[in-house]
Design a binder for these strands. Structure first.
Lengths: 347, 347
DNA sequence: CTGAAAGCGCTTACAG
DNA sequence: CTGAAAGCGCTTACAG
C-alpha cells in the first residue's frame, strides 16, 4: 500500500539516509536512533523519544545499513549455505526449507560449486571474509570442514559420519535403502546393478553401503562389473547405462538401483531408446523422490527424502546457535520412506 | 595443496588477522597493505615493500575483510539476484549461468520469493541495505522496479516490455511461440486450450499473447472458457486440467498449450489418470524445455529457452556496468526454438 | 533515560 | 614511493 511512498522516497540521485540524519531530524543522538531502530528501547529510551525517532525513521525512509552495522557488531546478518549442486531439484527444496526457517532477519547467501566439485580453500576464506552469522554446509567434505573449524555457528546437512563434534541434521537414508532392498527381494530379483553418483559426498556412500548390506542379507547380489558411477546428470547416466547394459544383461541383472532419481531418469530414457521393457525386463529405482518421479513413465520407485524439512530443521538449529542457545539435540535424523511406483511393479 | 596450512592458520580461537597486523609484521603502514592486498601496487608501492607485504599476508593468512572494505568503498562485492521461484529448474540453470559469468570476484546473493510472489517494498529496502555492487532481477514486476530506481548497476532478465530505460537480456519467446502455433496448425488442430502461469510476470503474458496471435493468424482459436491458470506446480496444474477437461472436451479442444513445462507435466499426469490418450486425443505442449521434458512419456513438445545463456549474458552486462563501462547493446535478445516430441506427434 | 566518544577494518585523498 | 589521518555507518560501553 505504501508503494507510491517508497517510489518517492527512493527517487533518483537521492542520498542514502543515515542514522545521523534521522538523529538530527528527531533531535536526538545517533545512539538513541540505533536503539530505536533495533527495537532495544525497553528501559533505555523514553516513550517520547521513541515516538519521535520512529516518526523520523518513517518520514525519511531510513533503513539500517547492513555494512556499518555488521562492522560494528563484528558479524553480518548473512547466513551462508554451501551446497554442492544447485541444479539438483533436491537442493532447491532444501533451500526453500532453509529460507522459510530463516525468515527475513537473515539473508541467505548461496555458495554453490559446480556439479561434483568441492569448495576450494580460497573460496572458504572468502566466505569467512563476509563474516557470516552462521554457516550451513550441505553434504560436506571432511577436509573442507576442518578449514572451517571454530569459526562460529555451523550446522551440517546430510553429513553422516561426522560424529558428535558438529551439529547436524541427517537423513535416515539407511532405512529407505533397507525398504528398497526388501521391496526388490520380494519381487524376486537376485542380481542387481548399482548406478552411483560421484560427487564424493558421504551421502552417496551411505546410500550404496546401506543398500548393498541389506541386499546381501536378503540373498541379492551386485555382481562384479555391475557398478557404474556418473555425476548427477540425466544424459551422462543414460550413456553409462547404455554402455554397461549389454554386459549387465549377460550377467543376469534384472534391476538397477540408482543413487539419485536423476540417474534413474537417464536409465529410463535409455531403456526406452533401447527397447528394454520396464519393469518387465528391468526394474529401476532412485533416491530423492523428485517431483517428476511421480510423472515419469513408468513412475519411478524411489526412496523419499524429506528435502524441505531437512533445510528447515537445519536452519532452525542454526538460529538457536546464533542466538547463543544450546542445542538439546545437536544431531537430528529425519526419516526416509520408499515410494513404490511402476518402475518396479511386480511382473 | 595448502589445505594443511589452512587448517593450522584457522585453528580454534584464533583472532581474525587484520591489515594492521600485517602492516606491523611487514613493517609498513596499513595503506601499503591495502594497496598490495588489492593489487594496486603499480607505481605506488616499491617492489621491496610489495614482496615484504605479500610474504606477511601469506604467513599470517590475511584475507581482506569484506565488511570493512565495503563500508570504506561504499559498496559491497555482492551481486543480488532477485528471482521469483527458485524451485523452477529453469531458474537453476539461469543461476548457473550467472555464477559462471560472475566468477569469484562477486558473491551471488539470491533473493528468492515464494512461488508466485513478488518481493515486498520492505524486502527491497533490506536488499539495498546490503549495498550490492549490482542487481539482477529476473522476471520483474514494473512496480518493484520503480522502487529500485537509480540505485546502481541493474540488469533485468526475461523482462520484455520495459523499454530502453533499463538494460535487459530477453528471450525471443515470440519466435518459439510462433513455431509452436505453426506446428500445431500443421498437425490439424483448430481448437486449443491455454493453461497459463499466474506469477503475474510479463514473460507469461508474452508467451500467451504471442501464441494466441500466431494461432489466430493460422486459423486456430482458443474458445471462451478454454483458458485456465495456476502457479508453477505440477499438482495444481493437474487439478486445474482435471476440472476443465470435461468442458474443454465438449468444446472440441484437441491441444493444450501450457505456459511452462511444469504445467504440462501436470496435464500429462492427469491425462494418464483420466485415460486421455496423448497425443491421439489431446496434444500437450510447454515452454522452457526442462531436462525432464525429454524423458516424460510421451516426450513433451516444448519451446526451448536458453536459460544458462540468459544468466551468463545478464551477468556479463552487469559486470560491465559495475566497471563503469557503457553497454554497446543494452538490450539483448536470445533465440528460442521449438523442440518437437511425442506429446504432439502427428496422429 | 541520554549523548559524546571510541571503535569495528578498510580505503583513499593528502602531504610529504 | 610512503604513512598519518579522515571517513565509511553503525553499536556499545561509559559517564552523566
Amino acid at each position: 500500500m505504501d508503494s507510491t511512498d517508497l517510489q518517492r522516497t527512493t527517487a533518483p540521485m537521492r542520498r542514502r539516509v543515515t542514522a545521523a540524519m534521522v538523529a538530527e531530524h528527531a533531535g536526538v543522538s545517533t545512539a538513541t536512533v540505533s536503539l530505536v531502530a533495533n527495537g532495544k528501547t525497553h528501559g533505555r529510551v523514553s516513550a517520547a523519544n521513541e515516538a519521535k525517532v520512529l516518526d523520523s525513521i518513517r518520514k525519511l525512509g531510513y533503513v539500517i545499513d547492513e555494512i556499518g552495522s555488521s562492522l560494528s557488531r563484528g558479524v553480518s546478518s548473512t547466513v551462508i549455505m554451501v551446497a554442492p549442486d544447485i541444479s539438483n531439484p533436491f537442493f532447491a527444496k532444501v533451500i526453500a526449507g532453509v529460507r522459510s526457517a530463516l525468515g527475513s532477519n537473515y539473508q541467505l547467501l548461496l555458495s554453490v560449486t559446480d556439479a561434483g566439485q568441492l569448495p576450494s580453500a580460497a573460496d572458504t576464506r572468502r566466505l569467512l571474509g563476509l563474516r557470516p552469522a552462521g554457516l550451513l554446509v550441505d553434504a560436506p567434505d571432511p577436509s573442507f570442514l576442518e578449514a572451517l573449524s571454530a569459526t562460529g555457528p555451523l550446522v551440517l546437512l546430510d553429513a553422516p559420519g561426522f560424529g558428535e563434534d558438529v551439529p547436524a541434521v541427517n537423513l535416515d537414508v539407511a532405512q529407505g535403502a533397507r525398504d528398497l532392498a526388501a521391496h526388490l527381494a520380494a519381487a524376486g530379483h537376485t542380481k542387481v546393478a548399482y548406478l552411483d553418483g560421484i560427487t564424493g559426498t558421504t551421502t552417496f556412500e551411505l546410500r550404496r553401503t546401506a543398500f548393498l548390506k541389506a541386499a546381501t542379507a536378503l540373498g541379492m547380489s551386485v555382481p562384479d562389473g555391475a557398478e557404474a558411477a556418473t555425476t548427477i546428470d540425466v544424459g551422462l547416466a543414460a550413456d553409462a547405462f547404455a554402455e554397461a547394459w549389454p554386459e549387465w544383461k549377460k550377467a543376469g541383472i534384472t534391476a538397477v538401483v540408482c543413487a539419485t532419481d536423476t540417474h534413474a531418469y537417464g536409465v529410463l530414457q535409455e531403456a526406452r531408446v533401447a527397447g528394454i521393457s520396464i519393469p518387465g525386463e528391468l526394474a529401476v529405482t532412485g533416491f530423492d523422490d523428485l517431483p517428476y518421479s511421480a510423472n515419469s513413465n513408468p513412475g519411478l520407485t524411489s526412496v523419499n527424502l524429506p528435502a524441505e524439512l531437512l533445510g528447515r530443521r537445519a536452519a532452525e538449529q542454526l538460529l538457536k546457535l546464533i542466538n547463543g542457545e544450546d542445542l538439546e539435540t545437536p544431531l537430528l535424523t529425519l526419516d526416509s520412506s520408499l515410494m513404490v511406483r511402476g518402475s518396479t511393479a511386480q511382473a
